[in-house]
Design a protein around this nucleic acid. Structure first.
Lengths: 205, 205
DNA sequence: TCTGACGTTGCACGTCGTGCAAGAATTCAT
DNA sequence: ATGAATTCTTGCACGACGTGCAACGTCAGA
């Protein structure tokens, strides 16, 4: 059970292949007919597996269209952030962290765009997506708390994490509007800058 | 069908009463046994209505525990905001708008705290909640776009709405941490101020 | 009291998702 | 290569969610 290296093995290959096929079939059918007009049985029929097997791969139909992707932050980057970040300025360092996080490949860029499309069309999926983002938020909040223990900061980790989540979404949206080419992380800088511009000009209290 | 005034009528009273009873029963049972160990039938049995009726009131079990509350922004406030807001400064006016919106009573303050508790314990409800917040976000974005048509602004409505959503959540969280007393809107000002402090200090680009 | 509108209920049905146990495929050891 | 062990797939039964429909009861207004 300690084989995280070496040859992928026939079993693992088949598994990944099936998972891919299931996601693809789900996307196709949903795009064509809408989420609620596609049954799990139909998806399974298209791929050629039993209904039961479907639920061995994904906990729910919705998870299948989302591809069940999970954003992982590289240890090196999160460690550096916790220890005071590359520059020492909180906002700037958050920007760096986001760029690194968004550059971790979870799905092919093309399928990622597919997911974005379907999600924006199906409210229920959006709920799933948001729940997923919430998990992300908790992760970021923990990082912020850890960093605060190292480098004192007057900012509330929860509030910062909340804003940060907004930044991620905004970056993704920009990326999508720009045609979905290249990495979403390319839009982090401009989003951060705009957010600064929004709140920076000190008004009369 | 044009009676938005005058006596509530026996029918309407019974309806509101039933709804209240259903939410209460749902909260009790869920708090006691967890969301997934409570069936709709049990809730209905506790209240004394048929299962079918339950779904006449709420589109899903989850909606029942959330109380299906929908945040309505008073027309007067949204109109003023669109036309350039009370002060003319975008961020300040957003603060005012949030205060007004959060002060609309949707549930009793006590039950609101219940909802918050249950939601933070049940991941699936969180998804629902987030979806609801997303609808809010769209509403705010539309307001921002309308305002921009009246008063030119360099800020992207989507980005602003995203940040704004974070502010609402943060205000609610503060309110909850403070014991859930008084209106959540009381925390808007401090959240906005902190957010400004976070992004205002201009760093070297 | 009568009449029409509205709400409730039971019933049948489709779909989702899970537990279980039998059977097939893959891996491993010899 | 052959058999044993592990892992995965599959069928089956089942509980729960949620909806459409039609019958029935109840409330509002004349």
């Amino acid at each position: 059970m300690q084989r995280t290296d070496r040859a992928p093995g026939l079993r693992e290959r088949k598994k990944a292949q099936r998972r891919e096929a299931l996601v693809a079939a789900t996307h196709d059918l949903v795009r064509e007919r809408g989420l609620d007009n596609v049954t799990v049985d139909e998806i399974c029929a298209a791929v050629g597996v039993s209904t039961r097997t479907f639920f061995n791969y994904f906990p729910s139909k919705d998870d299948a269209v989302l591809g069940n992707s999970r954003q992982e932050i590289p240890d090196a980057a999160s460690l550096e952030f916790v220890q005071g970040g590359p520059t020492g300025d909180l906002v700037t360092d958050i920007g760096h962290l986001l760029v690194v996080a968004l550059d971790v490949p979870v799905l092919s860029t093309e399928r990622l765009a597919d997911v974005y499309d379907v999600v924006s069309r199906e409210p229920r999926l959006l709920a799933h997506q948001m729940a997923w983002m919430e998990q992300q938020r908790v992760t970021y909040q923990e990082l912020l708390e850890a960093r605060r223990d190292v480098v004192p900061s007057p900012h509330d980790p929860e509030l910062v994490a909340l804003v940060l989540t907004g930044l991620i979404r905004a970056a993704f949206t920009r990326w999508h509007h720009a045609g979905g080419n290249g990495p979403p992380s390319a839009f982090v800088a401009e989003v951060v800058a705009e957010c600064r511009a929004l709140l920076a000009p000190d008004q009369a209290p």
